[in-house]
Simulated assay, not measured.
Amino acid sequence: MADMKQHKHSYVLMGPYFLLFFIFTVLPVVISVVISFTYFNMLEFPKWIGWQNYTRLLTNDDVFLIAVKNTFLFAAITGPLSYIACFFFAWLINELSPKVRAFMTLIFYAPSISGNVYFIWQMIFSGDRYGYANGLLIKIGVILEPILWLKTEAYILPIVMLVQLWLSLGTGFLTFIAGLQTVDRTLLEAGAVDGVKNRWQELWYIVLPSMRPQLMFGAVIQLTTSFAVADVAMNMAGFPSVNYAAETVVTHLIDFGTIRFEMGYASAIATLLFGAMVGTNLIVQKLLRKVGE
């Protein structure tokens, strides 16, 4: 209490943010968890049904199990790859002159804010001879007939992963650029005196420990994006995709929440996804704390 009185002005200044955070983040999460234990179709008052939604999800919903498999596979591949790619490109670009660095940052960040990004990839993987992928493969003699890339189950998920990786140089990338700019140059000079022999040792023992907050934030962003993938799958593979090849937990949630209006069931899906995200983020943050040790 004495500490709170001493810093009361700080708490007053943070008050509006905490109020908005509680109203628009904490409260909706709590309400969603409560609704997940009900049957709620948006027309009738929620009816308490206990664990039935979760039992149905885990034992009777085959599409949800496919979505879970796809989501974890997607997160396990695109999450680490996009995280490493974001940092690697940020590290390279940070070595350039300020003007060139600003230009290259724009080039790398542009895909994440482009409105025509899906149109470009749909042209590349078009199922006729005019698609760039088919045209190239036919020209060099790899295939004789065009492949229906986005209608063939074996190709759908890898293509969606590829597009997501291309889009991943967004907020995490900018975070790493900002973090690299804040590294104290005197630490690098001191490291050279103390026996740091090459750039890799400099990166591991000085640069990475100096930007742990940015590494944490980037990990949260990349993992959340990987687990919450939906737009890429829906735009590239359709909704639903062929044999649910690109079905994810979020697209399954959208199906029940915005099309079937089974809000209790959709809330159960959201609750399980939230738990998976929190658990994974805690594990990753624990691992990142060991960087530089």
Rank of each mutant, 00 (worst) to 15 (best):
N70P: 05
L157R: 13
P28E: 06
V117A: 10
I259F: 14
W51K: 09
E189P: 00
W166Q: 05
D194I: 03
Y118E: 01
V229Q: 10
L282G: 03
F239D: 07
G79F: 13
R289L: 12
T251N: 05
S97H: 10
L136R: 03
A268T: 01
T59G: 00
L73V: 12
M234Y: 07
G141I: 06
L188P: 00
S168N: 09
G135P: 02
I269N: 07
P16H: 03
T55E: 11
T186E: 14
K290I: 08
F64E: 04
A154R: 07
N60T: 13
N235Q: 09
P146M: 09
P16K: 00
L208I: 13
I84H: 06
L96K: 13
I269G: 06
E293T: 05
L150N: 10
G275D: 00
M42D: 07
N235F: 06
R260E: 11
L169W: 09
P16N: 04
S168L: 02
G191P: 07
I269E: 07
T38P: 01
L223Y: 14
F37G: 06
V33L: 14
G141N: 05
G292S: 03
D62K: 15
P111F: 02
N116C: 07
P146T: 04
L65R: 15
V220H: 07
Q122K: 15
L165C: 05
V29A: 12
P111M: 10
I206E: 07
V232S: 08
Y244S: 13
M104D: 00
P46L: 06
G275S: 10
E189K: 12
S114E: 11
M14A: 13
